[in-house]
Design a protein around this nucleic acid. Structure first.
Length: 582
RNA sequence: GCUCCCGUAGCUCAGUUGGAUAGAGCACCGGAUUUCUAAUCCGGCGGUCCCAGGUUCGAAUCCUGGCGGGAGCGCCA
């Protein structure tokens, strides 16, 4: 849409005596396609011209009819009340858009906008020693999508899994381990056992408050380098990581950096010293804090009363390290909205330290995942594992393939495992990405396991269908596209939707909002599906690629290929796998 | 108490920067397949855009005040 909104604005500019840049944002789409594809509202001109917007629209249409009668992409202009509506010429749009899309291929939609600048994306970041639950899905898939989108837009994304591998929780684990740690069980049961211990700790501390105290001491000895504590910590970490890797492999995620909080342990003193030397630290109730009360951000805790460090201390050190190491253009933290205050504090302290790059640090918050009927509590070990969700989706996808094959009397695809995997995982991932980040989501199996309507499998299916179309046509889109044969309103709608993808990526990136891409892909697929299923008056399929007219076939194949390219690329950015067929 | 997020069809959600008769999907009802994949398409049903004021030629959108839900506000992360 955008390239034609811009072009429309340029045509209007001399007539309304305003620069095209001011006009472009005013241009929208009429409510119904039969009214055209572009609309210019005349309300704003009414004041200066001292006539009604309706009269202005009529006049502009008359002038436009004269000045644009030989402009190829304009089919017609008409006045509708206070609006100037413009019909685009489908064939002319096709002649401009299709060659662009097909030439760009896998690069279509992307750009060099980022100029190779680094953007760190802190995402997923689960806590060691706890199962990887569905509630980690949000950060994981949003972050992964942002990484894909950044790469497509020409940035150098740095995916960082800031593992929760440090902190008081390890003190708790070590404390309970002293009572009943069992390395054999750990080797055999992995995280499940660690979770069990964690739950046990929380149960026991109710009756034995001194356990909490011991946990604090345990963490302190870990921080001070006690050999046995270190050994166990490394063991817990490695055990957990092994299980996380299974989930990441299923999702096709690889991080550039898995440093984790422990990595910054030796980098904290420098930050604390600098805070001290700049006079930012104050003692308060035994703890060491930065007073952010003047900024209405409360007190930022740097050191506990017992001298051990906190989350914020480590994030200061990590922000510093990331800036030094990657020289980022943006530094994104895909972390739940509940931690908004923490990141506001982080940015403010960086500012007070005189880091001029503090404004490049962005918290990318998202809504909480809640559970329908029950209250889930990790501390009680009540958790839905992400791995189980993915496996169940894959299983359902497989069953769907099987029953489909049976119904249609077809053989099972030889690569059914791979297909089921991509469809199942794709459904779960897309389901999470399609809604705006900030909304809270209620986990619902029915929704997660849905393959119909606005879902990942719908997009995959649309792409797969076109794939087999191309295969059957036994021809790549030819150099001769015969775009002059693409003349219908439905074809125009598809072309404009595809053409909007590059702009959509930049908008989505600016807002760190993958759902904008997801929405656009759904729009492209829906418009194409409408065209694909179009029927004539005799109820016969009206839009076929395989026809006895080679020119018509070439034109339609070109359009279909462009749609497939857009879908495959967009799904790729989002981290939704694309099956070859379905 | 203060702060942040959310509130649009029975359900889940879109809705550019303020623009025309507020749109999708699911569910429900009806229809479409001798022809490139029906995980699809077409039609119908369905609205106090949370409420009340205000700004504006024009408000789901901006402002103010409420209401409802979620979250945060010192030694967890």
């Amino acid at each position: 849409m955008s390239r034609y909104a811009r072009a429309f604005a340029e045509v209007l500019a001399p007539l309304v005596e305003a620069p095209a840049e001011e006009l472009t944002p005013l241009i929208g789409a009429p409510p119904r396609p039969e009214m055209g594809q572009l609309a210019f509202p005349c309300f704003g001109l009414a004041k200066t011209r001292r006539t009604s917007p309706v009269a202005i629209a009529t006049e502009l249409v008359a002038q436009l009819a004269e000045s644009t009668h030989n402009v190829a992409w304009i089919e017609s202009v008409s006045a509708a009340g206070p609006y100037v509506n413009l019909h685009l010429c489908a064939a002319a749009v096709a002649a401009e858009v299709l060659p662009d899309v097909l030439a760009a291929g896998a690069a279509f939609g992307g750009s060099t906008h980022g100029g190779g600048r680094a953007v760190t994306v802190d995402y997923s970041s689960p806590n060691i020693a706890k199962s990887f639950g569905v509630h980690h899905l949000r950060s994981t898939v949003i972050g992964h999508a942002l990484v894909g989108m950044l790469r497509a837009a020409g940035y150098r994304p740095v995916g960082i899994n800031h593992l929760g591998d440090w902190g008081t929780q390890f003190g708790q684990l070590l404390a309970i381990w002293q009572d009943e740690g069992d390395e054999e069980r750990l080797a055999k049961e992995g995280i499940d056992y660690l979770l069990e211990l964690y739950v046990e700790f929380n149960r026991r501390k109710e009756e034995k408050p001194e356990l909490q105290e011991r946990a604090r001491e345990c963490f302190k000895s870990l921080e001070q380098g006690d050999a046995e504590a270190r050994r166990l910590w490394a063991l817990f970490r490695a055990t957990s990581l092994r299980e996380f890797e299974r989930v990441y492999a299923m999702l096709g995620i690889e991080f550039d950096n898995t440093a984790g909080e422990s990595f910054y342990e030796d980098k904290m003193p420098a930050v604390v010293e600098e805070l001290e030397s700049k006079g930012l630290l104050v003692e308060s109730e035994g703890a060491t804090v930065v007073d952010l009360e003047p900024y209405e951000l409360g007190a930022a805790l740097i050191r506990k009363a017992d001298g051990s460090t906190l989350y914020l201390t480590r994030d200061l050190a990590s922000a510093e390290w990331r800036h030094k190491t990657f020289d980022f253009a943006r530094s994104l933290y895909v972390v739940g909205g509940a931690q908004a205050l923490h990141f506001a504090q982080l940015k403010k302290v960086l500012e007070l330290l005189g880091r001029d790059w503090h404004e490049l640090v962005e918290h990318v918050p998202f809504g909480l995942m809640r559970f329908k009927d029950r209250k889930m509590s990790t501390r009680k070990g009540d958790i839905i594992r992400l791995e189980d969700v993915l496996l169940r989706a894959v299983k359902l996808a497989r069953e769907t393939i099987e029953s489909g094959a049976e119904e249609k009397g077809r053989a099972l695809p030889p690569d059914i495992d791979e297909l089921a995997h991509r469809i199942g995982v794709g459904a779960v991932v897309f389901n999470d990405l399609k809604n705006r980040r900030q909304r809270d989501v209620v986990f619902d199996w029915n929704e997660v396991l849905s393959f119909e309507g606005e879902t990942g499998p719908y997009l995959q299916y649309t792409a797969a269908r076109i794939g087999s179309m191309i295969e059957k046509a036994d021809a790549a889109p030819s150099a001769e596209l015969h775009t002059e044969l693409l003349v219908s309103e439905e074809e125009l709608a598809v072309l404009l939707a595809v053409d909007g993808l590059p702009g959509c990526l930049l908008r989505a990136l600016k807002a760190c909002e993958p759902s904008i891409v997801a929405d656009t892909l759904l729009d492209i697929a829906a418009r194409f599906s409408t065209l694909y299923a179009r029927r004539d008056a005799d109820n016969r399929r009206d839009w076929q690629v395989l026809t006895d007219d080679p020119a018509l076939s070439a034109a339609r194949l070109g359009l279909a290929s462009a749609v497939r390219t857009a879908l495959v690329n967009g799904l790729g950015w989002l981290g939704v796998p694309v099956p070859d067929r379905m």
